[in-house]
Protein backbone atom coordinates (compact mmCIF):
# COMPACT_ATOMS: atom_id res chain seq x y z
CA UNK A 1 0.00 0.00 0.00
CA UNK A 2 1.16 3.48 -0.81
CA UNK A 3 1.52 5.69 2.23
CA UNK A 4 1.07 9.43 1.92
CA UNK A 5 2.04 11.96 4.59
CA UNK A 6 -0.16 15.05 4.45
CA UNK A 7 1.31 18.06 6.26
CA UNK A 8 -1.52 20.57 6.39
CA UNK A 9 -3.32 22.46 9.13
CA UNK A 10 -6.50 23.65 7.45
CA UNK A 11 -9.15 21.13 8.56
CA UNK A 12 -11.18 21.42 5.37
CA UNK A 13 -8.22 20.70 3.14
CA UNK A 14 -7.12 17.84 5.37
CA UNK A 15 -10.61 16.38 5.14
CA UNK A 16 -10.77 16.91 1.40
CA UNK A 17 -7.41 15.33 0.58
CA UNK A 18 -7.73 12.52 3.04
CA UNK A 19 -11.19 11.54 1.72
CA UNK A 20 -9.91 11.51 -1.84
CA UNK A 21 -6.80 9.49 -1.00
CA UNK A 22 -8.61 6.97 1.19
CA UNK A 23 -11.27 6.38 -1.40
CA UNK A 24 -8.53 5.69 -3.97
CA UNK A 25 -6.80 3.16 -1.77
CA UNK A 26 -3.97 5.15 -0.27
CA UNK A 27 -2.91 5.02 3.34
CA UNK A 28 -2.93 8.58 4.78
CA UNK A 29 -1.13 10.04 7.75
CA UNK A 30 -1.84 13.65 8.71
CA UNK A 31 0.46 16.07 10.54
CA UNK A 32 -0.50 19.66 11.32
CA UNK A 33 2.93 20.87 12.38
CA UNK A 34 6.65 20.21 12.00
CA UNK A 35 7.21 17.90 14.91
CA UNK A 36 4.34 15.60 13.97
CA UNK A 37 5.48 15.58 10.36
CA UNK A 38 9.02 14.47 11.25
CA UNK A 39 7.65 11.85 13.66
CA UNK A 40 5.41 10.33 10.99
CA UNK A 41 8.30 10.40 8.54
CA UNK A 42 10.34 8.36 11.00
CA UNK A 43 7.58 5.91 11.95
CA UNK A 44 5.74 5.29 8.71
CA UNK A 45 8.28 5.79 5.91
CA UNK A 46 5.75 7.35 3.58
CA UNK A 47 6.16 7.00 -0.17
CA UNK A 48 5.00 10.51 -0.75
CA UNK A 49 4.77 13.73 1.23
CA UNK A 50 2.24 16.48 0.51
CA UNK A 51 3.55 19.57 2.27
CA UNK A 52 1.76 22.86 2.81
CA UNK A 53 4.34 25.65 3.09
CA UNK A 54 2.22 27.68 5.53
CA UNK A 55 2.73 25.43 8.53
CA UNK A 56 2.60 27.30 11.84
CA UNK A 57 5.84 27.57 13.75
CA UNK A 58 8.28 26.86 10.95
CA UNK A 59 9.40 28.42 7.74
CA UNK A 60 7.91 26.13 5.08
CA UNK A 61 11.06 25.82 2.99
CA UNK A 62 13.00 24.81 6.05
CA UNK A 63 10.68 21.90 6.71
CA UNK A 64 11.05 21.00 3.06
CA UNK A 65 14.84 20.71 3.52
CA UNK A 66 14.39 18.73 6.70
CA UNK A 67 12.11 16.22 5.01
CA UNK A 68 14.40 15.88 2.00
CA UNK A 69 17.34 15.24 4.33
CA UNK A 70 15.48 12.32 5.90
CA UNK A 71 13.87 10.63 2.93
CA UNK A 72 14.06 10.15 -0.79
CA UNK A 73 10.27 9.78 -0.92
CA UNK A 74 8.36 11.90 -3.40
CA UNK A 75 7.83 15.39 -2.06
CA UNK A 76 5.13 17.65 -3.44
CA UNK A 77 4.83 21.15 -2.06
CA UNK A 78 1.29 22.50 -1.97
CA UNK A 79 1.20 26.25 -1.57
CA UNK A 80 -0.89 29.34 -2.08
CA UNK A 81 2.22 31.16 -3.20
CA UNK A 82 2.33 31.46 -6.92
CA UNK A 83 5.55 33.41 -7.44
CA UNK A 84 8.13 31.72 -9.65
CA UNK A 85 10.75 32.34 -7.00
CA UNK A 86 8.76 30.35 -4.44
CA UNK A 87 8.60 27.42 -6.84
CA UNK A 88 12.35 27.52 -7.51
CA UNK A 89 13.08 27.78 -3.80
CA UNK A 90 10.91 24.76 -3.07
CA UNK A 91 12.60 22.70 -5.80
CA UNK A 92 16.00 23.76 -4.52
CA UNK A 93 14.91 22.71 -1.07
CA UNK A 94 14.35 19.22 -2.43
CA UNK A 95 10.75 19.22 -3.64
CA UNK A 96 9.97 17.01 -6.62
CA UNK A 97 6.95 19.03 -7.62
CA UNK A 98 5.09 22.16 -6.71
CA UNK A 99 1.32 22.57 -6.74
CA UNK A 100 -0.42 25.87 -6.22
CA UNK A 101 -3.70 26.39 -4.42
CA UNK A 102 -6.45 26.26 -5.36
CA UNK A 103 -6.20 23.01 -7.26
CA UNK A 104 -8.62 20.52 -8.70
CA UNK A 105 -8.50 17.05 -7.19
CA UNK A 106 -7.64 15.46 -10.58
CA UNK A 107 -4.56 17.62 -10.87
CA UNK A 108 -3.41 16.58 -7.40
CA UNK A 109 -3.93 12.92 -8.27
CA UNK A 110 -2.10 13.22 -11.57
CA UNK A 111 0.91 14.87 -9.95
CA UNK A 112 0.99 12.33 -7.18
CA UNK A 113 0.97 9.51 -9.71
CA UNK A 114 3.73 11.05 -11.78
CA UNK A 115 5.92 11.66 -8.77
CA UNK A 116 5.31 8.19 -7.38
CA UNK A 117 6.13 6.56 -10.73
CA UNK A 118 9.44 8.39 -10.76
CA UNK A 119 10.32 8.04 -7.11
CA UNK A 120 9.30 4.39 -6.74
CA UNK A 121 10.70 2.94 -9.95
CA UNK A 122 11.46 -0.39 -8.30
CA UNK A 123 7.79 -1.07 -8.33
CA UNK A 124 7.40 0.06 -11.89
CA UNK A 125 8.72 -1.63 -15.06
CA UNK A 126 12.51 -2.19 -14.93
CA UNK A 127 14.51 0.46 -16.73
CA UNK A 128 16.16 -0.43 -19.97
CA UNK A 129 19.94 -0.32 -20.30
CA UNK A 130 22.62 -1.57 -17.97
CA UNK A 131 25.80 -0.08 -16.63
CA UNK A 132 27.06 2.97 -18.47
CA UNK A 133 30.46 4.45 -17.76
CA UNK A 134 29.96 8.19 -18.20
CA UNK A 135 33.54 9.08 -17.42
CA UNK A 136 36.42 6.91 -16.32
CA UNK A 137 35.37 5.85 -12.82
CA UNK A 138 31.90 7.41 -13.01
CA UNK A 139 29.37 4.65 -13.58
CA UNK A 140 25.58 4.81 -13.73
CA UNK A 141 23.75 1.52 -13.25
CA UNK A 142 20.33 2.09 -14.77
CA UNK A 143 18.94 -1.20 -13.69
CA UNK A 144 19.93 -1.02 -10.06
CA UNK A 145 19.45 2.74 -9.88
CA UNK A 146 22.98 3.35 -8.68
CA UNK A 147 25.68 5.86 -9.44
CA UNK A 148 29.28 5.20 -8.44
CA UNK A 149 32.34 7.35 -8.55
CA UNK A 150 35.50 5.29 -8.15
CA UNK A 151 33.48 2.50 -6.61
CA UNK A 152 31.85 4.79 -4.06
CA UNK A 153 28.07 5.25 -4.34
CA UNK A 154 26.84 8.77 -5.05
CA UNK A 155 23.48 9.48 -3.45
CA UNK A 156 20.88 10.78 -5.90
CA UNK A 157 17.18 11.32 -5.29
CA UNK A 158 14.86 9.36 -7.59
CA UNK A 159 14.04 12.46 -9.60
CA UNK A 160 17.72 13.27 -9.93
CA UNK A 161 18.39 9.71 -11.02
CA UNK A 162 15.52 9.74 -13.50
CA UNK A 163 16.97 12.88 -15.11
CA UNK A 164 20.48 11.43 -15.22
CA UNK A 165 19.12 8.16 -16.66
CA UNK A 166 17.39 9.99 -19.50
CA UNK A 167 20.58 11.88 -20.32
CA UNK A 168 22.72 8.73 -20.07
CA UNK A 169 20.49 6.70 -22.33
CA UNK A 170 20.59 9.46 -24.94
CA UNK A 171 24.33 8.73 -25.17
CA UNK A 172 25.47 12.29 -25.78
CA UNK A 173 22.56 13.29 -28.01
CA UNK A 174 20.84 16.58 -27.28
CA UNK A 175 17.56 16.24 -25.38
CA UNK A 176 15.11 19.12 -25.54
CA UNK A 177 13.70 20.74 -22.40
CA UNK A 178 10.22 19.52 -23.23
CA UNK A 179 11.24 15.92 -23.88
CA UNK A 180 13.25 15.77 -20.67
CA UNK A 181 10.39 17.30 -18.66
CA UNK A 182 7.87 14.90 -20.19
CA UNK A 183 10.10 11.88 -19.64
CA UNK A 184 11.00 12.70 -16.04
CA UNK A 185 8.02 14.58 -14.60
CA UNK A 186 5.29 13.47 -17.02
CA UNK A 187 2.82 14.91 -19.49
CA UNK A 188 1.73 18.45 -18.69
CA UNK A 189 5.11 19.46 -17.30
CA UNK A 190 6.64 20.37 -20.69
CA UNK A 191 6.78 24.10 -19.95
CA UNK A 192 8.15 23.84 -16.39
CA UNK A 193 11.72 24.61 -17.47
CA UNK A 194 12.71 25.85 -14.02
CA UNK A 195 12.22 22.25 -12.77
CA UNK A 196 14.93 21.23 -15.23
CA UNK A 197 17.23 24.07 -14.37
CA UNK A 198 17.04 23.29 -10.66
CA UNK A 199 17.61 19.57 -11.12
CA UNK A 200 20.41 19.94 -13.68
CA UNK A 201 22.14 22.19 -11.16
CA UNK A 202 21.71 19.56 -8.45
CA UNK A 203 23.15 16.85 -10.70
CA UNK A 204 26.11 19.00 -11.62
CA UNK A 205 26.76 19.73 -7.98
CA UNK A 206 26.81 16.05 -7.17
CA UNK A 207 28.62 14.65 -10.21
CA UNK A 208 30.93 17.23 -11.71
CA UNK A 209 34.34 17.78 -10.19
CA UNK A 210 35.97 21.19 -10.17
CA UNK A 211 38.62 21.39 -12.88
CA UNK A 212 37.10 18.66 -14.99
CA UNK A 213 35.25 19.42 -18.21
CA UNK A 214 31.50 19.64 -17.61
CA UNK A 215 29.53 16.40 -17.63
CA UNK A 216 26.24 18.03 -18.55
CA UNK A 217 26.36 20.59 -21.33
CA UNK A 218 23.73 23.30 -21.66
CA UNK A 219 22.57 24.07 -25.18
CA UNK A 220 20.95 27.48 -24.65
CA UNK A 221 17.22 27.55 -25.40
CA UNK A 222 17.42 23.98 -26.73
CA UNK A 223 18.25 21.44 -24.06
CA UNK A 224 20.96 19.40 -22.40
CA UNK A 225 23.28 16.56 -23.32
CA UNK A 226 26.01 14.56 -21.67
CA UNK A 227 29.62 15.10 -22.61
CA UNK A 228 30.80 11.55 -22.21
CA UNK A 229 34.31 11.15 -23.42
CA UNK A 230 36.58 14.12 -23.54
CA UNK A 231 39.48 12.33 -25.25
Amino acid sequence: MTTVLLVEDDPNIVDLIRANLLVRGYDVAVATERHGALAVLEARHPDLVLLDLMIPGVEGFELCYEIRERTSAGLIVVSARRAEQDKVTALNAGADDYLTKPFGIEELMARMTATLRRTRPMQGPPSAGGRIELRPGLVVDLERQLVERGGVPVHLTPTEFALLGELARADGRLLSHASLLRAVWGRGYETETEYLRVYIRRLRAKLEEPGEPPLIVTQPRAGYRLLRDTT
Binding site: N12, I13, L16, A80, K101, P102, F103, I105
Partner: peptide
Protein backbone atom coordinates in the same frame (compact mmCIF):
# COMPACT_ATOMS: atom_id res chain seq x y z
CA UNK B 1 -3.72 35.51 -1.23
CA UNK B 2 -3.53 32.77 1.35
CA UNK B 3 -6.61 34.07 3.10
CA UNK B 4 -8.62 33.93 -0.08
CA UNK B 5 -7.11 30.75 -1.48
CA UNK B 6 -7.77 28.67 1.59
CA UNK B 7 -11.56 28.68 1.22
CA UNK B 8 -11.16 28.65 -2.54
CA UNK B 9 -8.98 25.56 -2.32
CA UNK B 10 -11.54 23.81 -0.19
CA UNK B 11 -14.39 24.78 -2.49
CA UNK B 12 -12.45 23.79 -5.62
CA UNK B 13 -11.24 20.59 -4.03
CA UNK B 14 -14.64 19.48 -2.76
CA UNK B 15 -16.39 20.40 -5.97
CA UNK B 16 -13.80 18.64 -8.14
CA UNK B 17 -13.97 15.61 -5.86
CA UNK B 18 -17.69 15.37 -6.41
CA UNK B 19 -17.11 15.69 -10.15
CA UNK B 20 -14.33 13.06 -10.30
CA UNK B 21 -15.23 10.17 -12.58
CA UNK B 22 -13.18 7.51 -10.90
CA UNK B 23 -14.90 7.65 -7.54
CA UNK B 24 -18.50 7.13 -6.42
CA UNK B 25 -18.95 9.04 -3.12
Amino acid sequence: SHELRTPLTAITGYASSLLANDVAW
